[in-house]
């Protein structure tokens, strides 16, 4: 039991999450190289995915009814015959709710890449699409998959900006922005690389906050908001040297953005 507890805890909580104090530098400065011949191992082991998936999606005792709290994970552990006492270990550096939220973000990002990004270039109308069109398409695809937890999204976002969770959240947001840029066809080799990821991360967070403030089932409004944001980015012919955007990739700006929006609503 002890073994399971430690390995699960490590896997769910400590993976790639550096000390929370390194929040400002970790997301941008960690090693980043994506190999084609030496693919990385899956982030979650199968049994970890099972438990977290149950916690996130179970319509009776999971996040859809209980929100991003500790209880869905306790229920999931019980349903899988694991000791409930394990949940206490989630109250360390990262919490049980954060573990579920991170699972949601990572799996939805993987799904966006597998189901939308990689097939995007095979669509019949793709030749006429600009980088911004593709970005919009991917953003909408990714946000549409929030619908499953739509009613609980605010609680999930609140988890992201807890001080102990910031390093992990920013790291994940950074990966998402990088995927969105890469698969929408960004080929920038200079400072624009940073500025684009900064603006895309900001747009994503703005859209998700907008979505969190709407009743579930209002996805048409989210889509309209995404289009507005992306075309604004395009129309302004974005000043890629803007220090503000650089601030967003350094990402502390994102944390403040989420905090201010959550307290307002």
């Amino acid at each position: 039991m002890l073994f399971l507890r430690t390995s699960l805890t490590r896997a769910l909580l400590l993976h790639r999450t550096a000390s929370p104090f390194s929040a400002t530098s970790a997301p941008v400065l960690r090693a980043f190289y994506q190999s084609s011949d030496h693919p990385d191992r899956a982030f979650y082991a199968p049994h970890e995915s099972q438990i977290l998936d149950y916690a996130l999606t179970n319509p009776v005792e999971g996040v859809p009814v209980l929100g991003f709290t500790e209880q869905p994970l306790i229920n999931a552990l019980r349903a899988h015959g694991k000791s409930q006492s394990m949940a206490t270990s989630f109250q360390t550096a990262n919490s049980a709710p954060m573990a579920i939220m991170l699972y949601h973000m990572k799996t939805q990002r993987a799904k966006m890449v597998a189901e939308h990004a990689k097939t995007l270039y095979e669509l019949p109308h793709v030749n006429g699409l600009s980088q911004y069109d593709r970005l919009q398409y991917l953003l909408i695809a990714r946000l549409r998959d929030n619908v499953a937890v739509a009613g609980q999204l605010q609680g999930g976002l609140a988890q992201l900006v807890q001080p102990a969770n910031i390093a992990a959240s920013l790291s994940e947001l950074y990966d998402l922005a990088d995927d969105l840029c890469h698969y929408s066809g960004d080929k920038s080799n200079d400072f624009a690389w940073y500025a684009k990821r900064g603006s895309v991360a900001k747009i994503y967070v703005l859209c998700e906050l907008h979505q969190a403030g709407l009743p579930a089932g209002e996805f048409a409004q989210v889509e309209a908001f995404v289009k507005e944001q992306v075309s604004e980015m395009e129309n302004m012919a974005y000043a890629y040297n803007s220090m503000e955007e650089w601030g967003y990739i350094n990402m502390i700006g994102l944390v403040n953005l989420i905090r201010s929006q959550l307290t307002r609503s």
């Binding site: 980043f32 994506q34 080929k187 920038s188 080799n189 400072f191």
Partner: peptide
């Protein structure tokens, strides 16, 4: 340049 975009490497910020 091609390797940097294909391998998803962050370019030098000092560019």
């Amino acid at each position: 340049n091609q390797l940097q975009t294909a391998k998803r490497v962050r370019p030098s910020i000092m560019t």
